[in-house]
Amino acid sequence: MELQQIKDIKTFVQLKTKDDRSGHGMDHIERVVRNAQKIAQTEDCDHFVVTAAAYLHDIADDKLVTDQEQAYQEMITFLQTHQISTERIKHIMYIIQNLSFSQELEGGKATLSIEGKIVQDADRLDAMGAIGIIRTIYYGGHKGNKIYDPEIPPRTLQKKSDYRNESTVINHFYEKILLLNERLNTAYAKKIGQKRQRFLEDFLEEFLEEWD
């Protein structure tokens, strides 16, 4: 039963992400799911909730959809029609609505369950390291942002609206990506994060040296 429900959720997500050109497509989703499942093996958690939330975590992201509330409701309706319990649906939706970096800027860090912490870590790991660099550049190009401008310093983001105001691609590393490592929750993710953080720092050092 649960295996079929996960397969149905995956199919739903594939349909929703098939036209993505922002770096939040199915390849990203699959990596987050794999990361989440690996982390889940090291924690006492509900593996179904972890996998379902990992698949669904970007489907109603306000930088990807025009009507976030409609996207949330469509997701809830989908889960209900696939006989997923009300308790699990509430759990999955809470994770999705409270794991993002921008949400932390808006309302502070949410109190997440271990399942939420796992999915949050899995998502953040995919924004770090080599893949994180590619995704940041890809998204910046998608939004038409400059690669770099030494006259535009990185900002210290205070609220969600600041985050949504685009900056340069390189600034995004300093404004968000480099900050993720210290926000990881689980021991497994922290171990991976250390390596990816070093790679990010080395890349930026090399980039700035070449730019100058």
Rank of each mutant, 00 (worst) to 15 (best):
T156L: 13
Y148V: 01
T168N: 07
I137S: 00
H91D: 14
Q103E: 14
H172G: 00
T168D: 09
R198H: 12
N145T: 11
L99C: 01
N145Q: 15
K176T: 11
I170N: 07
G141A: 00
I133S: 05
I192Y: 12
Q194P: 00
S167R: 05
N181Y: 14
R124L: 03
M128Q: 12
E106T: 01
S167H: 11
Q103C: 02
D162L: 12
Q120F: 00
M93C: 11
I114P: 02
Y138I: 00
Y163W: 15
L112P: 05
A122K: 05
R155I: 05
L179Y: 04
D162W: 13
P154Q: 05
A130F: 14
A110N: 11
K146F: 09
Q97N: 10
I118Y: 11
A130S: 14
S100Y: 11
Y94N: 12
K90F: 00
D149P: 04
L178K: 10
Y139N: 15
G116M: 10
K117H: 01
G107C: 09
I137P: 00
S85A: 07
N98I: 02
I177D: 11
A110W: 10
L178H: 10
Q194W: 01
N145A: 14
Y188R: 05
L157W: 08
R155M: 11
Y138V: 04
E87L: 07
R196D: 13
A110M: 10
M93D: 13
G193H: 07
E87F: 01
F101R: 05
I170T: 08
K160D: 07
G141Y: 09
E182T: 13
I96W: 06
K159T: 08
S113E: 08
K159W: 01
I131V: 15
E151W: 00
K160N: 09
F173R: 10
E115F: 09
